[in-house]
Amino acid sequence: MTWSRSTFPSSRIWAVEKDETLVQTLVELAQSFGLATVGEWVSDALSVELLKKAGVSYLQGDFFGAPEL
């Protein structure tokens, strides 16, 4: 099995600004294995800013557009 990316569901990180060190550490770990990172369930501008600052490769969630049926 080959992995190419790791995801970070922001719903599991309750206070992103409080967990900034945790997010940064997880991103660095993923990058050390050559993995791209994905921030999921992003719902506000603060999360976007902090996840980008941490070096998360890709972001997705309601902040960018709600799913449509």
Rank of each mutant, 00 (worst) to 15 (best):
T2M: 06
W3I: 09
W3R: 07
S4R: 11
R5M: 14
R5Y: 13
S6M: 15
S6G: 10
S6N: 05
T7D: 13
T7F: 12
T7A: 15
F8K: 01
F8T: 06
P9T: 09
P9A: 12
P9D: 15
S10R: 07
S10Y: 07
S10K: 05
S10L: 15
S11N: 14
S11R: 14
R12L: 14
R12S: 13
R12G: 13
R12F: 13
I13N: 04
I13A: 07
I13Q: 03
I13K: 04
W14A: 11
W14H: 13
W14K: 14
V16A: 06
E17D: 15
K18R: 11
K18L: 08
E20C: 07
E20S: 14
E20F: 15
T21L: 12
T21N: 12
T21I: 09
L22K: 09
V23K: 00
V23H: 00
V23N: 00
Q24D: 12
Q24M: 14
Q24F: 07
Q24R: 15
T25R: 14
L26R: 02
L26I: 12
V27R: 02
V27L: 01
V27I: 08
E28H: 09
L29N: 03
L29V: 08
L29K: 09
A30K: 06
A30G: 07
A30M: 04
Q31E: 11
Q31N: 11
S32E: 10
S32Y: 01
F33H: 13
F33Q: 09
F33E: 10
G34F: 06
L35Y: 06
L35T: 01
A36W: 01
T37I: 08
V38D: 13
V38P: 06
V38L: 14
V38T: 10
G39N: 03
G39C: 09
G39Y: 03
G39Q: 02
G39E: 01
G39V: 06
G39D: 03
G39P: 03
E40W: 05
E40G: 02
E40N: 09
E40D: 11
W41S: 08
V42Y: 00
S43C: 08
S43Q: 10
S43K: 08
S43R: 10
D44R: 05
D44V: 02
A45F: 03
A45D: 09
A45W: 04
L46K: 11
L46G: 02
L46P: 00
L46W: 00
S47Q: 15
V48A: 00
V48I: 06
V48C: 07
V48R: 02
E49A: 13
E49F: 01
E49L: 11
L50R: 15
L51R: 02
L51M: 14
K52N: 13
K53T: 12
K53R: 15
K53H: 12
A54K: 01
A54Y: 00
G55T: 08
V56K: 05
V56S: 02
V56E: 02
S57C: 04
S57L: 01
Y58V: 12
Y58R: 09
G61Q: 02
G61Y: 09
D62W: 14
D62K: 10
F63V: 03
F63T: 01
F63D: 00
F63W: 14
F64L: 05
F64T: 01
G65P: 04
G65H: 07
A66I: 10
A66K: 14
A66H: 09
P67V: 08
E68Y: 07
E68T: 11
L69C: 09
L69D: 15
